[in-house]
Design a protein around this nucleic acid. Sequence first.
DNA 1: GCAAGGTC
Length: 655
Amino acid sequence: MRILCVAEKPSIAKAVSEHLAGGRVQVRNTQNKYIKNYCFDYDFGQGWGNCSVTMTAVLGHLTSTQFPPQYKDWKHPPPDRLFDAPVQTIIAEDKTDVAANIEQQAKYCQGLCIWTDCDREGEHIGHEICEAAKKGNSRLNIRRARFSNIERAHVLNAARNLVALDEKQVNAVSARIELDLRIGYAFTRFLSNNLKPMGEPLTSKVISYGSCQFPTLGFVVDRYFRVKNFKPEPFWSIKVMHKREGIDVHFAWARNRLFDRAAVIILYERCLSAKMAEVTKVQEKPTKKWKPLPLTTVELQKMATRFLRLTGQQAMTAAESLYNKGFISYPRTETDRFDKGMNLQALVQKQTPDNRWGQFAQDLLNGGFSQPRQGRNDDKAHPPIHPITYAAPSVLGEDEKKVYEFVVRRFLACCSEDAKGVATDIDIMYGEEAFHAHGVVVLERNYLDVYVYDKWTGTAQLPKFTVGERFEPFEAIMTDGKTTAPSYLTEADLIALMDANGIGTDATMAEHIQKIQDREYVSTVPRASRPADDGDDGGDPPARGARGGRGSRGGRGGASTTASRVGVMEFIPTKLGVALIEGFDRMNFETSLGKPFLRKEMELKMKAICEGRTTRQAVLNESIGQYRQVYNQSQEKLQVLKAACRQYLFENGVG
DNA sequence: GCAAGGTC
């Protein structure tokens, strides 16, 4: 028997060939410079038995979907005809040589084995490969290998346990492709046709709509309005200080702060009249700062935009280049747990020559090694991003150097122990009011020594207090302050929002962010340093609980405490961006195009197809009907959208 | 001139 094996990308074809062949591989070039055919013998066991195998690859999707030529003009027929126009699936222009290789090889084979990634898109790519192969040989016996990493035993196991291609997943993706095409083209033409005649700057632009780009823009506009409409609110608090053993101890108020001055005055005066405070609890217990989780694509991008002064796209370009040179593993992954079978210490070993972290790596090998934490995500296709071989700084470009250093430090941190310390908590009652002092002393830095992006400074050692003792506080004062506005979105915030709302994939998020900049819907400016809440005195850590209080939702998650460093870019919508989102919002549809719901709905429908609860055709009918309705409503209320454009673009509406 | 998803 002759068997053709096809992977989603050349690196997988190469790795799988090496495992299956056990050393004896013939490598042949193809028409495509990235793709090689690997020829070897392999025994598939009970199914196909001993076979002569050719293993090759595609480069992602083979086909592209398009409208027939009579729909080329943007105005005739009108854009809404694209909702039911026929769509054609053709071999993509730049993939003809890839498809030809598969068609040709299939002629000599009786069996086809699909080795694409184990995700929905991979299943669809598998289907595209089948169609290309059938052109060469319509009587192929088709199977699929299910594998989630390219560790040797795992790959061999997959080859002996072949399954069928999952048509449901293929159909789910095919529905996604068709909907994105129809809706994207129809609304892009609608917006451009109707808004361009309003005059510059619209006339010379393409005003596009996409199921990912618009919600991404929506996040930026939403935050912009939250900042713009923010009203600072005054608040009051009580701060208790006490000096002992030469150390100033700050007791934070358990109520944090109140927005009622009279109430605080009353509570404050009760404290003062009590005179003595009583220690109600003293607790000293071990604490730790957890080492980071294994690295995913989304996390790489967030960290790169925060700490490496790169955009998400620059980080991805550098990571892809490092991957293609063999320095790091595949950079597009959602997986944050390492497979048990991986030899991580061998990878640590490779880093010992470096003069920045080599000693740290050596120390891990000398007993400091600790198994990485296991995150909850597994895309069943790729391991977390990790270094493969050592790359000296001299062989890397500027961006590559930064990304490689980050990937290595993150990996070594994952293989280290958590940082350890001891936390001291002291609770006091001062009259009727509770106050709290918290101190941390760092004892073992461990992973922090290599992972320079995390900080854990600790505080001064707290002096000794004893439960039941009474003392007169050194100082008790009433403080006041104002809530501060949330800040504009950073790229890390935006990526986190997209991730949480299912907008785009790890491989495309950065592209969508770039797209809304290219379309001039948003722009970026360096973050100015901004003052903290007036009420938060410097020095001591702020009381626990939400900063910002009411009126300041958003903005201030734990993440932005690091992101607020100067030099990080923040995203602000342009007048056009605001006009588009506001325009659609004011049309008041039940399904607003600027919100992330629609994409989420699409995701749920794809899942339903995969689980057999609905069909591709049912989803297409339903979704196309829904969007056609939105289109018709948009046409009826076009004046609302145009008015928003006039307001923001031509009346100096926003600055 | 237009989408989003793979990958190089």
